[in-house]
Design a protein around this nucleic acid. Structure first.
Length: 203
DNA sequence: TACTAGATTATCT
DNA sequence: GATAATCTAGTAT
């Protein structure tokens, strides 16, 4: 039984991803990430927590030290996925933003599951829906994103981000980014206030 | 509720 | 050889 949660006609277009990274980081809150697997399973959820990583003046960004094998996807044009592995165990997903050659991305930290919840539970091997996509490593595991998904386009029917809910500014909180050791002063983390699916604390 | 340690490997220096 | 945009389980408070 498939639940149709979003229409591909509602998907964000190429131009959307070429805009300012911090703006997009905030705008992605309340949007829906949709992944149509080849086996027919639809995985989807609302983005509830993001962080912006910039090309300039941001030592925490992977692009800060220039292009390398790992971060090369970040230097593509906006609208593709940048996936990397961290601590040898977890995958983390980013949405590449802005024009080719810059090195900007939005880090997806947490998602509220909407569709394909049984598959996500199986992928995570847990039963608590609130924990399914809490934290970047868990998002990747629930959606089964791996290094193979690096460079994937977000402009296809198989994988895209679509409009979902209108979110007003006052329910979006922002704070310092989590888990980094450099440029810790920037307040580039955005989240949906009082949402039980976000990671970390709400301050 | 809060802190700490340990897991584990692609990538970078 | 060292590091890392993390997560979880365990112990302490």
């Amino acid at each position: 039984m498939k639940e149709i949660i979003s229409d591909f006609s509602e998907s964000l277009n190429f131009e959307f991803y070429q805009q300012n990274t911090v703006d997009i980081s905030k705008q992605l809150i309340g949007k829906v990430l949709v992944k149509n697997n080849p086996d027919g399973n639809v995985l989807a959820g609302m983005i509830v927590e993001t962080e912006a990583y910039l090309a300039e003046n941001d030592k925490a960004s992977h692009s800060a030290t220039g292009k390398s094998r790992r971060n090369s996807a970040m230097f593509e044009h906006g609208g593709i996925l940048y996936v990397y592995k961290i601590y040898g165990i977890h995958h983390c997903i980013n949405v590449v933003i802005e024009e080719s050659g810059k090195g900007c991305a939005v880090f997806i930290r947490a998602i509220e599951p909407i569709s394909g919840i049984d598959i996500m539970k199986k992928n995570r091997n847990i039963d608590n829906v609130n924990l399914l996509c809490k934290g970047p490593g868990n998002v990747s595991k629930a959606f089964d994103f791996t290094l193979n998904d690096n460079y994937s386009s977000l402009l296809t029917k198989e994988l895209y981000i679509g409009k979902y809910k209108e979110i007003s500014d006052e329910v979006i909180g922002n704070s310092k980014r989590i888990g980094i050791t450099k440029s810790i002063d920037h307040e580039f983390r955005f989240f949906l206030k009082n949402n039980p699916f976000i990671s970390g604390k709400m301050f």
